[in-house]
């Protein structure tokens, strides 16, 4: 089947089997390998991308289902060479150790902060509860999200 998927503002068209998972389209057809396959069983959230702005586990969706939709992956976060606030937060607060869960963590957080720009620590922990960090670095991940929230608030007020 022919599909056209907009990823980070660029259209990718290909003839794919219906059983091709969205995450494999992103990694192998579009060659954007920042989106990771972790558990492959809908548990870990490493493959999280935004589909029309909503976080989805791209290992649990077929590429044909994303036909005509807009996807944001980690490669689409930085704008004009400048890190997004969430990326800056993970950098400043050492929000990653091995880095495997980081793209999913960041995309979940971006959508969450749009919905809830001033979250409590508990709300952040709840929001990222579908993303697992096997390094267990959650304290710094939460701080990274808090950093991003503050940065975004400053930018808005500033």
């Amino acid at each position: 089947m022919n599909v056209t998927i907009n990823i980070n503002g660029k259209e990718y068209s290909d003839d794919v089997e219906p059983r091709l998972l969205l995450v494999h389209f992103i990694r192998e057809n579009a060659n954007l390998t920042g989106t990771h396959v972790g558990c492959d069983t809908t548990s870990c959230g490493a493959c999280t991308v935004l589909v029309d702005g909503v976080p989805m586990k791209s290992c649990t969706m077929f590429a044909v289902q994303a036909n005509g939709k807009s996807i944001t992956t980690v490669e689409g976060l930085a704008q004009n060479g400048k890190l997004a606030p969430i990326q800056e937060g993970f950098h400043e607060k050492h929000g990653l150790q091995c880095g495997f869960c980081t793209p999913g963590m960041m995309l979940t957080s971006v959508a969450f902060l749009k919905k809830n720009p001033h979250p409590s620590e508990e709300e952040i922990r709840w929001a990222i509860s579908g993303n697992l960090c096997r390094c267990t670095g959650y304290v710094n991940i939460v701080e990274a999200v808090q950093y991003a929230a503050e940065k975004m608030a400053e930018a808005q007020n500033g």
Partner: peptide, 8 residues
Amino acid sequence: ADPIVRNR
């Protein structure tokens, strides 16, 4: 499940 699964 979890918040991301619930989006779908």
